[in-house]
């Protein structure tokens, strides 16, 4: 479903932020990426849906190259949902409008169709009563669940999560993770940047530890936790698992 082949990325200063990484995420799989701040996780994630241009390598989504000039990036992005650390809901729109904007403008759905679908999704993420409210009036956990609903409204083939619970108070983390676990179990293809190792254990097929732009450790979930080889991985794990 998503193939990442020897991708490297650097910004203006020339320092490699993503350094020759490869991975394959098959349909229905969930892959969790963890690693210290600044290691290039967000940048890599943004490469997958073409929000960031990379200089070397290739990424294929459903066989379509993200970086090829002939690719319709807007169409490609419409097929990949993305959830951000800081939610990024549109503050001037109600929850319902946040969710229906892209389906109406990109998929050309009628308002009625889009709203019916949106209500269904709000039900699914557990806040059907918040449709008419503005994002600023919601808790962080509720905002993030709206953001997930906004992505799902496009009926994406895959979902990217960039530290979806890092900006949340502890008591709200679970409500968001529950939604994500459901999603993973329902067969969604997911790439999740997160330090929630409980979540990784529960639903990830593969876990990747990233540091300084490289994949230091990349293993099936069980063996990642049982037998991480690299000392840096083990040190990182011991720090976040306590």
């Amino acid at each position: 479903m998503i193939q990442i082949r020897q991708v490297s990325l650097w910004y203006r200063d020339g320092r490699k932020v993503v350094d020759n990484v490869s991975a394959e995420i098959r349909r229905g799989q969930t892959v969790v990426i963890c690693g210290p701040s600044g290691s290039g996780k967000s940048s890599l994630l943004r490469c997958i849906n073409g929000l960031e241009r990379f200089q070397e390598g290739e990424i294929l989504v459903d066989g379509i190259s993200v970086s090829s000039p002939s690719t319709d990036l807007h169409a490609l992005r419409a097929e990949i949902g993305m959830v951000f650390q800081h939610f990024e809901l549109y503050p001037h729109m109600t929850v319902l409008d946040n969710i229906t904007l892209a389906p109406r403008k990109v998929r050309k759905k009628t308002r009625q169709e889009a709203e019916t679908k949106a209500m269904e999704l709000l039900n699914r993420v557990g806040i059907p009563d918040k449709a008419a409210v503005y994002p600023g009036e919601l808790s962080g956990g509720q905002q993030q669940r709206v953001a997930i609903a906004r992505s799902l409204a496009m009926e994406p083939k895959a979902m990217l999560f960039d530290e979806p619970t890092s900006a949340l108070d502890p008591e709200m983390i679970k409500e968001v993770l529950d939604v994500m676990v459901d999603l993973a179990r329902s067969g969604m293809t997911m790439v999740v940047v997160s330090h929630e190792m409980g979540f990784a254990r529960e639903v990830a097929d593969e876990v990747i530890f990233m540091d300084a732009g490289r994949f230091i450790e990349k293993k099936a979930t069980a063996s990642f936790f049982a037998s991480a080889e690299n000392p840096r991985t083990r040190e990182f794990l011991s720090r976040i698992l306590t």
């Binding site: 929000l51 904007l101 403008k105 990109v106």
Partner: peptide, 24 residues
């Protein structure tokens, strides 16, 4: 992040400006 969120749902540059960036 507002641009990124809008683009990630497939909105074009013009649509992003019109519906998200300019009203904000």
């Amino acid at each position: 992040g507002q641009y990124r969120a809008a683009h990630s749902t497939g909105l074009s540059g013009g649509q992003t400006y019109r519906h998200v960036v300019l009203p904000y």
